Amino acid sequence: MTASAEPAPPPVPPDADPGAALAALRGEIDQLDDQIHELVMRRAEVVAALATSRVKGGASPLRPGREAMILRRLLARHRGTLPGGAVVRLWREIFGASSAMQGGFTVALHAREPGQARLARDHFGGAIPIRSLPSAASALAAVAAGEAQVAVLPLPEEGEPLDRAWWTGLDAPRLQVVARLPFWSARGEAGPEALAVALGAPDASGADRSYLRIEAAAEQGRTGLLAGLAGAGLAPRSLLLRRDGGTVRALAEIEGVLAEGDPRLAALPFAHVLPLGFYAVPERGV
């Protein structure tokens, strides 16, 4: 049976008996539910085939860039009264269940507030195990050891203590930022945010932002860092600074994909620069 196997019921006449009209509409909903279910089951079959095929080659099921592309496409074609956020939540559950089907997928979570735990659950869905860990370092260690496939960590903040500034010691390029949570939220809505870190490079979505870790002499300061980045064509959206003795460590957020080997990195007048990964630019609904 396929989603198009059953013909659509005839329209309800405007003068129909209310009870008959209600029964007809409920019957149509039942048919639509069956069609949706058929398509969901077929999608699962395709995911299972992909997981065992040579095409994928044993790669991780975590594909945040690919997921972002799917969600953007669906949101662009979406119409009607069903909120876009509901569409995103439906597909986030589908994505999570698809990852769980492929086996051995666990999220290592370090949350500083309950909202970040809910954020991780909403993003990865109910089918994915989530381990709460006491520190960012322990969450990253779980990923590095293969005990989890992704770590969900608080966003870096200006002036936070060194033991919270996990980005200063991120083992890139082995570990990289691959996603920013949430991918979708209502416009103007203020809520918790987080970054996801995984082994290996993320996949590009077509609209991405990158993180760059910089070490420079203390005298360069924020002004010198901004000027050096702009001179290389890498003017940052944001710049966090930490001063440790005679060294400044900075985290720059850059538009676009920035990876090792990018010629713009060689033009930067700093002691050390290292890309830390990138994420799909989140969508903001109405």
Rank of each mutant, 00 (worst) to 15 (best):
G231D: 06
V281Y: 05
P192C: 12
G221S: 11
V177D: 09
A252V: 07
G261F: 05
G233V: 06
P236D: 11
E255Q: 06
L225M: 10
G221D: 11
V257A: 09
G221W: 13
F278I: 02
L265W: 03
A216S: 09
G246I: 03
D244E: 01
V257I: 10
T247P: 00
F270S: 06
L258R: 03
L265K: 05
T223S: 15
A198L: 03
G228A: 04
L239M: 13
G233F: 09
G256T: 07
G246F: 02
F183Q: 05
G228H: 08
F183N: 00
L251D: 01
L239I: 15
P192M: 09
A250S: 11
G224C: 12
A271Q: 10
L225S: 13
L195T: 04
E255K: 00
H272D: 13
R213C: 02
E283V: 13
A186M: 00
P236V: 09
L195D: 00
S238C: 06
A266T: 01
P173G: 07
D262K: 07
A186P: 03
L212I: 10
Q176F: 11
A267N: 15
L251V: 03
P182M: 05
P282M: 09
V178A: 05
L195H: 01
T168H: 03
W184Y: 06
E219I: 11
D244F: 02
L265E: 01
A271C: 07
A227S: 09
A218I: 14
G200F: 08
G188N: 04
R187P: 07
L251A: 04
A204P: 05
L274F: 00
D171G: 03
G206I: 01
G233K: 10
G224P: 01
V248G: 02
G224R: 03
L229T: 00
L195P: 05
W184V: 06
E283K: 04
G221T: 13
A207M: 04
V273Y: 04
R249W: 11
V273T: 11
L258I: 06
R284A: 15
G285T: 04
P236K: 12
A259Q: 14
Y279S: 07
T223G: 14
V273M: 08
S185K: 10
F270N: 02
R213E: 04
A252W: 13
P182H: 04
G246V: 01
A216P: 15
G233S: 09
A250E: 11
L175M: 12
S238W: 07
R237M: 08
Q220C: 11
L265G: 01
P192N: 14
L229D: 00
G256E: 03
E193F: 05
G245S: 13
V286T: 15
S238I: 12
S185D: 08
P282Y: 12
E255N: 08
I214G: 05
P202L: 02
F270K: 07
S185L: 13
A250L: 12
E283C: 02
R213D: 09
A201Y: 00
D262G: 05
V248L: 14
